[in-house]
């Protein structure tokens, strides 16, 4: 689910980027903010950080004694993406294993759907392996889009990545 978030960060402008012209300073602050924002990539609470939408307020700068850099408190609004337990999402299958499939959903690279969470589907050994529901004829194969429910979410702090376990158990879930 996408989130609209209001944040307050401190942006550090190196002394050499300080300009007499106010406009340039504002640009330097924005560029620096976008830089920090991209580098941050994701947080546990907000998910993947996607874009800064508005720069709401630039506070008064404080000079750092030793370096001469200036620190500006900045309020801004941004967009992020996170999946939640119980959420219905659509994932695209990118890897099929005997025990389940891996899917992508937006910035999330690894959503795991175990074969235990897709009752009715059987693994088919073939050149292009897939899971087949013999009753309905529906297939889970590579590049298929599946509507599924999020069972659990995990955040990997070191990689700044989210992983999730999803299931197909419920009405109206399955290949779209």
């Amino acid at each position: 689910m996408f989130l609209k978030v209001q944040l307050s960060w401190n942006v550090v402008i190196p002394a050499e980027n300080l300009d007499i012209k106010g406009l340039m300073l504002q640009k330097a602050i924005l560029v620096r903010l976008l830089d920090d924002f991209s580098a941050k990539k994701a947080t546990k609470d907000l998910g993947y950080l996607l874009a800064v939408t508005t720069l709401d307020k630039i506070g008064e700068g404080k000079v750092r004694e030793h370096s001469g850099d200036v620190l500006f408190p900045v309020n801004f609004t941004c967009l992020s993406f996170k999946v939640f337990r119980g959420e219905i999402i659509e994932g695209v299958v990118h890897k099929i294993l005997k025990h389940g499939v891996f899917m992508r959903c937006g910035p999330i690279e690894n959503l795991y759907l175990s074969n235990q969470k897709m009752s009715g589907y059987q693994y088919q050994v073939a050149e292009n392996p897939c899971f087949l529901n013999e009753k309905t004829g529906s297939r889970i194969e590579k590049d298929a889009t599946l509507r599924c429910v999020v069972i659990g979410v995990k955040y990997l702090e070191a990689q700044k990545e989210f992983q999730a376990v999803v299931g197909l158990e419920g009405d109206y879930l399955g290949p779209v």
Binding site: M1, F2, L3, R85, E87
Partner: peptide, 22 residues
């Protein structure tokens, strides 16, 4: 059943957006 409890997990400064809005 898996209940959606987004509001409990979200910090105060965040709000859900629909895909179409995003």
């Amino acid at each position: 059943p898996l209940l959606l409890k987004v509001e409990e997990e979200l910090p105060e400064n965040a709000k859900c957006l629909m895909n179409c809005e995003a």
